[in-house]
Design a protein around this nucleic acid. Structure first.
Lengths: 156, 156
DNA sequence: AACAAACCGTACCAAGGTGGTACTGTTTGC
DNA sequence: GCAAACAGTACCACCTTGGTACGGTTTGTT
């Protein structure tokens, strides 16, 4: 499910902070201090970002994290994927470790097909915003148009 | 936050069940039996739907619930509002009982404006599907297009 | 009047997720 | 060798969710 938990918020903040000073190494303590956030939380999320390959880490004294890539190549979708893990707006199609569908009412669900469409649309929208957009405060305008094309969906 | 919990799923199922046989009174037990769901859960959600003014209830022996209105006038957005309470995709603008913003990083949040746009788009999409659509299995096709109009956002 | 069907209200509990803390390594610059 | 800073893990309090239980109230039927 799409949660956008507080930890994810912290991750976005940290990403933007680093992307604004590319290549520069900053400690978790500094970032936490800047935003007035608990240090262990920030270290946790920075670790996640590093494991996801989004930022670079340097250990030892004078170490810290840095963003070295091109901010225009990192999408918001990618950030959320790293911070939240694989997600969907609804769990219609999600399966557990045994391969069985999580949603118990799946076969009878009246809104599954529609939710799937919304899900795809949201994911698509997240792919169209880059980390560069976030750092600049320049955001693309997202428009949602709906045509009432009557497509009969085979229920079951 | 938009959760779409299992209880909400049950509520959609029950709504569709009732909307397919307008005016007809059905007990919670029958609906639960039809979908193989726990009876107390179904009664709980039916109560919610009734309190939200979406369905009619009749107490006593031979009582139950019925849907008497026009299914085309009830939107999925309205259903979710009744079942989940007031919701937003993200809590950017949500305030607690004291009127303070829930989101602690609100002023510094790099993605607030963008999330707001997505939020509005999703809500709009939910307004364009009716209970009638759900009962018929006929769903409008929702298209989400994004133009990269560069609008500078004042980052407070 | 009695009874049973069925809604109503509330309280309760177990399980899981979230936010946050603590502590112990390990690396590395000075 | 010391201290700064990342790495890993474990732990805890709190809240939400899914589900159950129980007593109360309404109402049709006999």
């Amino acid at each position: 499910m799409l949660k956008i938990s507080r930890l994810t918020d912290y991750g976005l903040l940290a990403s933007v902070y680093l992307a604004r000073i590319p290549g520069q190494v900053v400690s978790a303590r500094d970032i936490a201090g800047f935003y007035h956030l608990p240090v262990p939380m920030v270290t946790k999320v920075l670790k996640t970002l590093h494991q996801g390959g989004l930022i670079h880490s340097r250990r030892g004294a004078g170490g810290g994290y840095s963003f070295d890539a091109d901010a225009e190549m990192v999408t918001l979708g990618r950030l959320l994927e790293v911070l939240e893990g694989p997600w969907d707006l609804v769990e219609c199609e999600t399966t557990d470790e045994t391969g069985h569908a999580i949603c118990a009412i799946r076969v009878a669900c009246p809104s599954r097909r529609f939710m799937f469409g919304i899900n795809q649309a949201v994911k698509g929208a997240f792919e169209q915003v880059t980390l560069g957009d976030l750092t600049r405060g320049v955001l693309p305008v997202v428009a949602l148009g709906a045509e009432r094309t009557e497509t009969v969906v085979s229920t079951t």
